[in-house]
Design a binder for these strands. Structure first.
Lengths: 94, 94
DNA sequence: AAATTAGGTTTATAATATAAACTATTTTAT
DNA sequence: ATAAAATAGTTTATATTATAAACCTAATTT
């Protein structure tokens, strides 16, 4: 048995943290994710884009009062990808 | 609880596979690791160097008959680092 | 003896992660 | 009223990384 490939989109500390967060909630706001992960806004913005482009999360932009509000949630595709990643990863660490 | 930092030296598919292999054996030869991980020789050579420089593995060069033989084994430091990495990682995937 | 294989290493390149710099708007202080 | 600072992000530049291609040396094979 050889080592399964790890989805490079998920094998990134920050993106993995984002997905880990999102898999446990209905949705989460940009600022909340930023605080929980400790990421800089710039880095977070880039990584959310990548996850969104891959279809792993959906991102909606609206307003909270007068301030911009970015809300993220994991998609079915994202959940599947995360689960596959975790299963593959276990081969390396168990 | 926020996300623990993942040792960047271990958070790499190939290096993690190498460590995963080495933690289960006494020692392993270059060619064996190459086959098991599916890595190219060049890539493997580079990654073994990095792990060696970090003190995570020890690398000994000798000869098998007339051919060069590179033998690797995990160190105590490497075992500790691997275990820490795995513990931290679990926070993301459980 | 020329070509191929074995066992690697070095170097060049492409991809990635990351933060610095920037934008636009809003709130707060003077 | 207006200057300063905070909020909520985005874009861009840079530094690091992963990876394979090219290379090297010695030993086999044809």
């Amino acid at each position: 048995m050889s080592f399964a490939k790890l989805d490079p989109l998920l094998h990134s500390q920050l993106r993995l943290a984002i997905m880990s967060l999102l898999i446990g909630v209905d949705s989460a706001e940009f600022v909340f994710i930023k605080e929980k992960t400790g990421a800089t806004a710039g880095n977070l913005s880039v990584q959310l884009d990548k996850l969104s482009n891959a279809g792993y999360i959906s991102v909606t932009k609206s307003f909270k009062g007068k301030k911009p509000l970015t809300t993220c949630s994991i998609t079915k595709v994202g959940i599947k990808a995360f689960e596959d990643y975790v299963n593959n990863l276990k081969q390396y660490i168990e």
